[in-house]
């Protein structure tokens, strides 16, 4: 039986705590395990991928998706959802290839403004108690509209420095991997280990308790949204650095990819249960799944379907792990 009543008869105290703990650890390990399995499959099928160049090629586009996933995760950890992430990143990309390239000052101002808009959204959603899904749905129209006004037809040029930046080739380990590791670790220490992170996550778990303990939920939400906006900007910049030009729809699919990444990484939609490391791993998994599909020459018709199938498969694994867990009443 599923459903709301998940009462399992009382187990002796020690074993119950241990069972819960074991299930939690397994769940935390799942994103890493699925990524390793995926990588191993790819390397077996295409040994050439196991090289600096191969990894670089496969993972290049992973960085903007990882950044977008982190942004989405920040929003999800305060029990909201951002359905405008993809259009926002597209908008940033359009700003980068137009304003930022021609009038750098204006460009930076616009990007700072974007972060400001996100902060405002956080304030609006919190103070009027609005459903984030609907507000960000409205925002997605606004970002796309803005992008079309800025860049009516595909084109533009990313600033040279940006292109150079994302093409740095550090020795031994490709840039994409370094960025992902640094991003995951930094966010892990910030959100999971620091005292600030505890308060931010607590606001997702039990907002009332956090407010009673004397923290301002408004400030927490504004901070989370502003940070999400910041990571969205970074994602957009990294993306155009790679693609060098942009269009208004360049990153629309990032909305769904970022949500899927957070979930694949072990995050849950409510209750402030998120994992930054998991989110980064989830994003990598999604990207590599795409590569795997092209390696095994799946007809392009079925590629998107196969991606869905992989998502379902990983989630099925998680369901199996969850079944091990013994929850107290």
């Amino acid at each position: 039986m599923n459903a709301p009543l998940n009462s399992v008869a009382r187990a002796p105290v020690a074993t119950r705590n241990n069972a819960a703990r074991r299930a939690r650890m397994l769940r935390a390990a799942l994103p890493a395990v699925s990524l390793v399995v995926l990588l191993a499959t790819i390397f077996i099928m295409q040994p050439r991928a196991m090289s600096y160049m191969g990894l670089n090629l496969m993972l290049n586009l992973a960085v903007p998706i990882a950044l977008a996933t982190i942004a989405q995760m920040l929003i999800i950890s305060v029990n909201d959802l951002d359905l405008s992430m993809g259009s926002f990143i597209s908008f940033v990309a359009c700003v980068a290839v137009t304003l930022l390239d021609q009038h750098p000052f204006l460009g930076w101002l616009a990007l700072a403004g974007c972060v400001g808009v996100y902060a405002l959204l956080g304030a609006l959603i919190h103070s009027r108690n609005l459903p984030s899904i609907v507000v960000t749905l409205g925002m997605s129209f606004i970002w796309v509209g803005g992008a079309i006004l800025l860049l009516p037809s595909p084109g533009g040029t990313a600033p040279q420095w940006l292109q150079a930046l994302v093409r740095i080739k550090p020795p031994l380990i490709p840039l994409a991997i370094i960025v992902c590791i640094v991003l995951g670790l930094a966010m892990h220490f910030f959100l999971m280990r620091s005292t600030v992170g505890v308060v931010l996550r607590g606001a997702g778990g039990n907002p009332l308790a956090i407010a009673k303990a004397g923290w301002s939920l408004l400030r927490i939400k504004v901070a989370m949204y502003a940070m999400a906006g910041g990571f969205g900007v970074l994602s957009g910049l990294f993306l155009v650095g790679l693609t060098t030009s942009a269009d208004a729809n360049v990153a629309l699919r990032y909305t769904l990819l970022s949500i899927a990444g957070v979930i694949l990484g072990g995050g849950e939609f409510v209750g402030g249960r998120v994992s930054p490391m998991g989110a980064v791993l989830g994003a990598l998994t999604l990207v590599l799944a795409g590569s795997l599909l092209s390696f095994i020459r799946i007809s392009p018709d079925w590629q998107i379907g196969a991606q869905g199938a992989i998502l379902i498969f990983v989630l099925a694994l998680r369901a199996a792990v969850n079944r091990l867990e013994v929850r107290p009443l």
Binding site: T195, V198, V199, R201, G202, G204, G205, N206, L208, A209, I210, K212, A213, G271, G272, R273
Partner: peptide
């Protein structure tokens, strides 16, 4: 208070820190 004011997603030590 009567209603519990712990954050269920945090561990016991983290909940201690909140206060």
């Amino acid at each position: 208070f009567q209603e519990l004011s712990l954050c269920p997603n945090l561990n016991v030590a983290e909940n201690t820190r909140l206060m």
